[in-house]
């Protein structure tokens, strides 16, 4: 995609209602489109689809860098608004080593609590030491590399693995 044109074959704007409006190459207008990452965990920057509010794919974007500045900005902004996967930086305390257990954690998005329903809600990701923890509310917390956590967090975490 090195020779990708700097102008996109489609237009993207934000309307006063805060929705993204897409105008395709064929002139079709869609309001409320959402960008979706195809590989949200393993390759977040590769393959982003623009989906219509009806759930149809309008555009496939191989890489964001190929897009004009403003469109890229809009997409990044919208993704930032939709994506919520706090990254755990430190596990401060856990209510118990038996599940369900309430964890106090410090994340990339501030300090919070999460409730781990069972050990099965901890999913190992492909990367070395990467974990995804689903809390009882359906929020997913990411641990990029558990070896990089401080000793205490690692010790706590090990009890659940």
């Amino acid at each position: 995609m090195s020779s990708a044109p700097r102008s996109a074959p489609f237009a993207l704007t934000r309307n006063p209602m805060g929705r993204l409006v897409y105008v395709g190459a064929d002139g079709g207008i869609h309001e409320g489109v959402v960008p979706v990452r195809a590989f949200a965990l393993s390759a977040p920057d590769q393959g982003i689809a623009l989906m219509s509010a009806e759930g149809r794919e309008l555009e496939w974007i191989e890489r964001l860098d190929g897009l004009p500045e403003d469109v890229r900005g809009l997409i990044a902004e919208e993704l930032a608004q939709r994506e919520f996967m706090p990254e755990i930086k430190r596990i401060v305390a856990v209510s118990s080593f038996a599940t369900p257990s309430t964890w106090r954690v410090e994340t990339s998005r501030g300090a919070t609590e999460l409730v781990l329903r069972s050990e099965d809600d901890i999913r190992r990701l492909k990367g070395p030491g990467a974990l995804l923890i689903a809390d009882s509310q359906g929020i997913h917390f990411l641990i990029r590399d558990r070896k990089m956590l401080d000793a205490q967090s690692q010790r706590i975490l090990k009890r659940f693995l």
Binding site: P16, M17, G18, R82, E83, F84, G138, I139, H140
Partner: peptide, 12 residues
């Protein structure tokens, strides 16, 4: 994705 949103608008 586990985040709820409330939006206030005036129709426009």
């Amino acid at each position: 994705a586990g985040v709820g949103t409330l939006e206030l608008d005036d129709g426009e």
